[in-house]
Amino acid sequence: MRRSTDFGAVVRSGVRARGGPVIVHFRPELDPGSPARIGLIVGKQVGGSVVRHRVSRRLRAQLAQRLGLLPAGCGLVVRALPEAAAADSALLARSLDRGLGRALELAPGNEAGR
Rank of each mutant, 00 (worst) to 15 (best):
C74W: 04
R2W: 07
A112K: 13
P32R: 10
A61H: 11
L92N: 02
E83P: 03
L92K: 04
P32I: 05
L69R: 15
R94E: 11
C74F: 08
A64E: 12
R98P: 01
S49N: 08
V50P: 01
R2D: 10
R79F: 02
R37Q: 15
I23F: 07
L70S: 11
S56C: 11
A107H: 03
S4I: 00
L106W: 00
C74D: 05
R102K: 15
M1C: 09
G47N: 08
D97T: 01
L104C: 08
G19T: 14
D31S: 11
G113K: 12
R79S: 09
A17R: 01
G68S: 13
A80N: 05
A90I: 15
G68C: 08
S56M: 12
R79H: 14
T5V: 13
A61T: 04
I38Q: 15
R79L: 12
S13R: 13
V42F: 03
R12V: 12
P108A: 09
V77D: 13
G99D: 00
L91C: 06
V10S: 10
G14E: 01
I41D: 15
R27I: 08
P71Y: 00
V46A: 05
R58M: 10
A72C: 08
K44S: 09
R57C: 06
E105C: 07
A107E: 04
L81G: 01
I23H: 07
S13V: 05
E83N: 03
E105N: 11
G73T: 04
P35F: 00
L63P: 00
V11L: 12
D97W: 01
I38Y: 12
L91D: 07
L81W: 04
F7V: 00
R79M: 10
A36W: 05
P21Q: 02
R98E: 14
G68D: 13
